[in-house]
Structures are given as C-alpha cells and as structure tokens.
C-alpha cells in the first residue's frame, strides 16, 4: 500500500505537481524506506541548507544600509557637480572675456553713433523748418528746433571731451 503511494508521490514529485502537504507525506514515507534513493535528494537539500546558512546581526545590516545611503548621496552630489562644471565650460555664452568686449567697446560706439545721428537729424529738420517759416511772423517752432540742435551738439562735444 505504502509502496504504491510512494511510487505515486515520487512520480508526481518528478512532474512538479506535489503540494506542500504531499511533499511532507513523501518525506515521511522516505524515512520509512531509508534505502530509497530519492531520500538522497532531500538529504542534499537539508545538508546544503545547513552548509549555506549565513547569520547577520541587526546592527550589521542597518549599519550597512546607512553606509550605502551615505555613499549614494555623495555619488549623486559628484554627478551633479560634473554636470554643472561641464555645462559651464561647454556653453560659450558664459565666457566672461567676450562679455566685457561687448559691453565696453560696442556700447561706446553705438552711443556715439546715435548722438551723431540725432545731431544730423535735428540739423536737417532745423534747415527744413527754417525754409518753411522764413518770412513768417511766428518763429516758436524754429526756436525750439534750433535749441534742440544746439543741445545735441553740446552733448556730443561733451562726450568727445570726456574721451
């Protein structure tokens, strides 16, 4: 009877269809039949479990976790630093030397040219107004534009003196 049952369980063991309860039953039957070679399989499992048993303490585990987290934070910080440094070096617009060239020379030149343009424009306007109002009695616009022309010329002269 138990021989038949052992054969059935052995067959199902090899098919991989034994549940936990049947596995325990098979182990029990194998103890009753110590010469059965399948007993060597379960003996191998038990021995291997014993041979590969590693004990770890709570302190060891939690300390290891903390160390890893600390290393992880430093790693992220280092990666961030490398990215920021690479960005700073590789983006040409951030080059300070070029920024200074633009701000000093270019701005002075543009400012001087704008004053010249304003002066020329006011002169032209002044002459035009003069032609229109020549002989006329009211001369307020003429005076205003004349004054504007004089003021612009004065600013341009002051700028040139500063240089």
């Amino acid at each position: 009877m138990s021989g038949n049952r052992l054969d059935i369980l052995e067959e199902r063991f090899e098919e991989g269809t034994l549940n936990e309860k049947e596995t325990q039953e098979l182990k029990g039957l194998l103890k009753e039949n110590p010469s059965h070679p399948l007993g060597a399989y379960f003996l191998w499992v038990d021995r291997t479990k014993n041979d590969t048993d590693i004990k770890v303490s709570r302190q060891e585990v939690l300390q290891g976790l903390k160390t890893r987290q600390r290393h992880s934070s430093w790693r992220y910080a280092a990666i961030l630093l490398v990215i920021v440094s690479a960005g700073y070096l590789l983006i040409p617009k951030l080059n300070t030397e070029k920024m200074e060239l633009l701000s000093n020379k270019e701005l002075d030149k543009t400012y001087a040219e704008s004053l010249k343009t304003l002066s020329a424009f006011s002169t032209m306007l002044n002459e035009g107004i003069n032609d229109i109002y020549s002989g006329a009695d009211f001369s307020t616009p003429f005076k205003d534009f004349k004054q504007l022309n004089e003021t612009t010329k004065q600013i341009l002269d002051d700028e040139n003196d500063d240089k």
Partner: peptide
C-alpha cells in the same frame, strides 16, 4: 512553465538516483 521547468530540473537531478534504484 514553472511546472515544466521544475519537472525537467528534478528529472535531471535525480536521473542517477533512478539508475541506482
């Protein structure tokens, strides 16, 4: 798939045992 792989593995592991038996 688990059952098939388990069955193959156990048959492979216990082949020599069956030979002895």
């Amino acid at each position: 798939n688990v059952r098939v792989n388990l069955s193959r593995a156990r048959k492979f592991l216990t082949e020599q045992l069956r030979h002895e038996w």
